Amino acid sequence: MVQGADRNTERRVVALRHEGEDAAARLPALLAEADRIAATVAQGVHGRRRSGIGETFWQYRHHRPEDGRAAVDWRQSAKSDQLFVRQNEWEAANTVSLWRDGSASMQFASSRNVPTKADRAAVCLIAVAALLTQGGERVSVLGESAIARTGALGLERVSRRLILGPGAAQSVEAPHISRFSRIVLSSDFLDPPETWAARLSRFAAQEANGVLLRIVDPAEEDFPYSGRTRFEAPGSGETLLFGRAEEARNAYRARWAQHGEQLAALARQFGWTMITHRTDRPATSAVLSLFKTLARDV
């Protein structure tokens, strides 16, 4: 019994090592792809000026009750019968926490012509991280980065974690974040909407919101199968056999659309934005939408 357990443990260690080596082998290619996408997107977006705690004056705005008395710029307010607050140009770095789902379903790719959902999610997040760090913002990987960083070092560490890290569900089920954090969750979001409602409610309790980057394989949306087809649930080994898969196509597509609508409704309910991206389409469009959404929300 002990020898059998030892052999099982050894096989598991070998399998994990090979898995890690395979992931590491993909690292340069994925980083190069993310860098190319970030460079392309950067040409289409411009730097933004935002209000913050820097020292460079930007504009005056009307005083709001939550600002308090100390925020009033009395010199400017004395020129009229209204109270004004002095806003400065943003110079303090913000933090964006990124998460790439590491569940078994994210390893799916329906053909050799499309990447796995996990790889596409990592590429999109790394490209966005590159754009954010270029703007002086700090990035971290949710549940894996102890310290949020900016610059080349921060990008390098975040990139490795997004490709090689576990992407554990614990990171979104019991998140450790600061209030008002901005989050990007990249997943296929195949868990029941109730599960995601509970997860987003935990972020809401900490007054954090952000973007759901939903990664979809084309076969998942189109259901192109016909004839005798066996489907296997990733990770569980459970199978489902169809004698004529095409007969289930309409019902499947309706259920798929309903699931997407429920996710979008959840995002709106909690003040998040959902972006859906298919792996058979250029990642550039997803990165551009994601970056613009983050820029708009701050």
Results as ranks from 00 to 15, higher is better:
206 Q>L: 07
292 K>Y: 02
46 H>W: 10
187 S>N: 05
36 R>E: 06
26 R>D: 12
17 R>M: 13
254 A>F: 02
161 R>Q: 14
276 T>A: 15
288 L>C: 03
274 M>S: 00
74 W>S: 05
218 P>V: 12
121 A>L: 05
237 G>H: 04
247 E>K: 14
149 R>W: 14
259 H>M: 04
168 A>V: 02
91 E>T: 12
61 R>M: 00
50 R>N: 04
209 N>Q: 00
19 E>I: 03
181 S>M: 02
154 G>A: 10
69 R>I: 13
17 R>G: 03
60 Y>R: 04
61 R>P: 08
128 V>P: 03
65 P>G: 09
190 L>I: 14
289 S>Q: 07
206 Q>G: 07
1 M>Y: 05
254 A>L: 15
117 K>T: 11
122 A>V: 09
275 I>F: 06
118 A>M: 12
130 A>Q: 00
235 G>L: 00
21 E>N: 13
8 N>G: 10
126 I>D: 03
120 R>C: 01
188 D>W: 13
172 V>P: 07
98 L>Y: 01
238 E>W: 00
160 R>S: 08
236 S>H: 02
9 T>N: 00
144 E>T: 10
172 V>Q: 01
214 R>H: 04
38 A>I: 11
64 R>K: 06
147 I>N: 05
246 E>P: 15
37 I>K: 01
272 W>K: 13
192 P>V: 04
131 L>F: 02
188 D>E: 13
229 T>Q: 04
292 K>H: 01
288 L>A: 03
223 F>T: 08
21 E>I: 10
115 P>T: 00
12 R>A: 15
13 V>P: 15
6 D>W: 13
58 W>F: 08
42 A>T: 06
190 L>Y: 13
112 R>T: 06
222 D>M: 14
267 A>T: 00
115 P>L: 01
209 N>F: 06
65 P>A: 01
257 A>C: 04
99 W>K: 02
216 V>E: 07
54 G>E: 06
198 A>N: 00
292 K>V: 11
212 L>M: 12
219 A>D: 14
10 E>F: 10
297 D>H: 09
247 E>C: 11
197 A>R: 14
164 L>H: 08
271 G>K: 12
110 S>I: 06
184 V>G: 11
176 H>V: 13
227 G>T: 09
6 D>A: 13
24 A>K: 08
128 V>H: 03
291 F>S: 08
99 W>P: 08
143 G>R: 03
292 K>E: 01
157 R>H: 08
178 S>P: 00
185 L>H: 02
258 Q>T: 14
83 L>Y: 05
14 V>Y: 00
117 K>Y: 07
268 R>A: 09
269 Q>N: 10
132 L>F: 02
100 R>C: 15
168 A>T: 05
117 K>G: 03
263 L>Q: 07
139 V>L: 06
72 V>F: 06
191 D>T: 02
189 F>I: 10
295 A>G: 08
84 F>W: 12
72 V>R: 06
74 W>M: 00
199 R>T: 12
116 T>D: 10
71 A>S: 11
19 E>D: 12
138 R>E: 05
25 A>I: 03
213 L>N: 02
199 R>Q: 12
134 Q>R: 15
59 Q>D: 13
26 R>G: 11
192 P>G: 05
220 E>H: 11
47 G>D: 05
171 S>I: 08
280 D>K: 15
117 K>M: 15
283 A>L: 06
225 Y>R: 02
81 D>I: 01
266 L>F: 09
112 R>Q: 11
295 A>N: 12
117 K>C: 02
246 E>L: 09
140 S>Y: 00
